[in-house]
């Protein structure tokens, strides 16, 4: 037979073959040893990697489900829902409610189960149930991801101010006096925490001075001992005349469960409550014999009367009738159903 041109590539000697095989074994072992050398570092990096990725996912969940009540940066909304991005939350809250487990579990369980509405809550909202185990919209892994996200505030929360000596000395420990002196350097990172009415802090008053922040600049410099001052709840703060509907929509945290700027379509099912961008088209079709306005009105005052298919009953609070006046509810209904509502 004719020899092909690549003939020289053939290995003929058995000894060479065996040597090449041994070389291959050596290379394999060297590669495995290299892998073994970095194995601890690699596992650590992988642990961090998967933690990082779940924080990323958790951030997406938070920014589409939680920010409407807990604020964009988790610092809470006055009278709506408490701050999570808060030094108090990370250091004292668990002691105050007598929670023996880890903060991770506290958050995960709160998110999973929600908090039942209390008869006289300082919050205009209830913390909804999120886990699909209890009728909410989230899978367990999503609860875990958003928990990781909340925990990731820790580093920043721990640097928050509970009233630095400089401030307390100008304003005094007790009392609600604002900063009067001009020498105070503005505190950039105040704890935005609003104390819980139903869980007064057991921290010794002298050792911790809480900064009772509302939001933004107004809060700067308002320091007070926790036991001395409690912020006003949403109810107490209700102003005289009827409140405008767009304000109600956030203050009652409808916006926490419903998206008004998105349409409810088969591909885009709002969670935990249906989107309301196109409610003006669909409302009249929900219950026969009820026109759009009657239907929406009834949905607000008695959410269980008709439960939107695909959603569990009992998520939407049933006590809006006691929180808004008749006039306010009517105007809210009109506003929701207005197809030309400014976005």
């Amino acid at each position: 037979m004719r020899k092909p041109w690549y003939f020289w590539l053939y290995v003929r000697s058995p000894i060479t073959k065996i040597l090449l095989g041994m070389l291959a074994v050596l290379i394999s072992f060297a590669a495995l040893a290299a892998q073994g050398m970095f194995e601890n570092k690699r596992m650590e990096a992988q642990t961090d990697n998967w933690h990082g990725r779940s924080v990323e996912k958790g951030a997406e969940i938070f920014s589409s489900n939680c920010y409407t009540c807990h604020g964009v940066d988790g610092k809470g909304l006055p009278g709506v829902a408490p701050a999570l991005h808060s030094r108090y939350f990370f250091t004292q809250r668990m002691k105050d409610v007598g929670w023996a487990g880890s903060l991770h579990d506290y958050i995960a369980l709160t998110v999973a189960a929600g908090r039942p509405s209390k008869s006289k809550s300082q919050w205009s909202q209830v913390m909804p149930t999120w886990s699909s185990k209890y009728g909410g919209p989230m899978r367990d892994d999503q609860v875990e991801q958003v928990t990781q996200f909340v925990l990731n505030w820790q580093e920043d929360a721990l640097t928050q101010d509970w009233g630095t000596p400089a401030i307390t000395s100008t304003t005094g420990v007790s009392g609600t006096g604002g900063v009067t002196g001009t020498t105070v350097t503005p505190m950039v990172n105040l704890d935005p925490f609003q104390p819980f009415h139903d869980g007064p802090s057991k921290a010794p008053t002298n050792t911790i001075t809480y900064t009772v922040g509302t939001l933004g600049a107004a809060a700067v410099g308002t320091t007070a001992a926790l036991s001395a001052t409690l912020p006003q709840s949403a109810e107490a703060a209700a102003p005289a005349g009827p409140r405008p509907p767009q304000e109600l929509y956030t203050a009652m945290a409808c916006s926490g469960c419903h998206k008004i700027d998105q349409d409810q379509t088969p591909d885009n099912q709002g969670q935990p409550g249906p989107n309301q961008g196109n409610l003006h088209e669909t409302a009249a079709t929900r219950v026969s014999g009820e026109d759009a306005e009657t239907y929406v009105y009834n949905s607000i005052v008695n959410p269980s009367a008709f439960v939107v298919p695909g959603y569990p009953d009992g998520i939407m609070p049933k006590d809006f009738k006691t929180k808004m006046s008749e006039e306010e509810i009517r105007s809210l209904v009109k506003w929701i159903l207005d197809p030309n509502r400014p976005k």
Partner: peptide
Amino acid sequence: DVLLDETMFLIGFTALMIVLTVF
């Protein structure tokens, strides 16, 4: 003869796979 060829070939191929996965 053939056994030797096959064995050494597979050992070489295994080494290639290990190097590819490790690096």
